[in-house]
């Protein structure tokens, strides 16, 4: 009896500790959201914030349209490069796991995942900016693509590995070539998981500043031509926040809020897609 009471007491203490730790872990997240929302909301509530571009300090009505469009173009171009290559790479690594070449690809993408994004930016600078002597959106998107590639490869690999082997064998037993089974049966089955990975990579690339610092550089003007220097949301935050003007600092918070909402939206979408994948895999 006594021992029972003691055991219950101990267990409720532990439960309390776990609750406390969970709350502690959630505090930073809550603070980030709170600060971003409370500080960013005033800027965001002006419609011109989304339609206008940079205006110098003192001139009202400045906005981040150039940064939003810039991010869309930079990340869009990066996705066009990284997602198809990453998906093919991921399918290859998963389906031909025993090839020695596949383990090299896996190693390379592991190394790439761990590479600091500033180093990736430096690499793109040396590769693209230095030879042509000017900054460009293309250089920025190449840096972002390199950042995205390993994420897409690894999540695709994971999604493909989730597909039961029976499906693969059933396809092969019909006399279909291995690559067709991989690309036309296994990959479509793994599609939700693959899309999840692509979305996560997009979210990650949208929020990165370092790869853009000396590639896309930033621009105060509204540009849609990726051969020129281009603004992006994280660059806006980084640049404006360092300026001594309150109105531009407020805009930096506004840009941060836009970015956080965007990334959160993409992440939620990817989770929803992933849940569908898991449900589907259970039926096979």
């Amino acid at each position: 009896m006594n021992r029972n009471v003691r055991r219950q007491f101990a267990s409720s203490i532990w439960l309390g500790v776990m609750y406390l730790l969970t709350v502690l872990a959630l505090i930073p997240l809550g603070l980030v959201l709170w600060f971003t929302v409370s500080k960013g909301l005033p800027s965001v509530l002006h419609p011109e914030f989304f339609t206008n571009s940079f205006r110098p300090f003192g001139i009202p009505g400045g906005g981040i349209a150039h940064a939003i469009v810039g991010t869309a173009i930079l990340v869009g171009l990066a996705s066009l490069m990284a997602i198809p290559i990453g998906i093919l790479g991921g399918v290859y690594v998963a389906e031909y796991a025993v090839d020695p070449w596949a383990s090299w690809v896996r190693l390379a993408s592991d190394v790439l995942v761990g590479t600091p994004s500033i180093a990736i930016g430096l690499f793109a600078y040396a590769l693209v900016v230095v030879p042509v002597h000017h900054f460009s959106g293309i250089a920025g998107s190449i840096a972002l693509a390199i950042l995205m590639l390993p994420i897409v490869i690894r999540t695709t690999e994971g999604a493909v590995a989730l597909i039961p082997n029976g499906l693969r064998e059933s396809g092969l037993a019909l006399g279909l070539p291995r690559w067709r089974v991989s690309l036309q049966l296994i990959l479509p089955t793994a599609a939700p998981g693959v899309i999840t990975g692509a979305l996560l990579a997009v979210a990650r690339a949208s929020g990165e500043t370092a790869p853009l610092l000396f590639t896309s550089l930033g621009n105060t003007l509204f540009k849609v031509d990726p051969t020129q220097a281009m603004q992006a949301l994280p660059l806006t935050i980084y640049q404006y926040a360092l300026l001594p003007y309150k109105s531009l600092q407020d805009q930096a918070w506004g840009a941060a809020l836009v970015l956080v909402v965007m990334v959160l939206g993409i992440n939620l979408l990817s989770r929803w897609v992933l849940r569908r994948q898991i449900r589907l895999a259970g039926q096979l």
Binding site: P164, G166, E169, S170, A173, T189, L280, Q283, L284
Partner: peptide, 12 residues
């Protein structure tokens, strides 16, 4: 030489 397995593995 076709094959039918223990699990039917319907394609999705």
């Amino acid at each position: 030489v076709g094959m039918v397995f223990q699990r039917p593995s319907p394609f999705p």
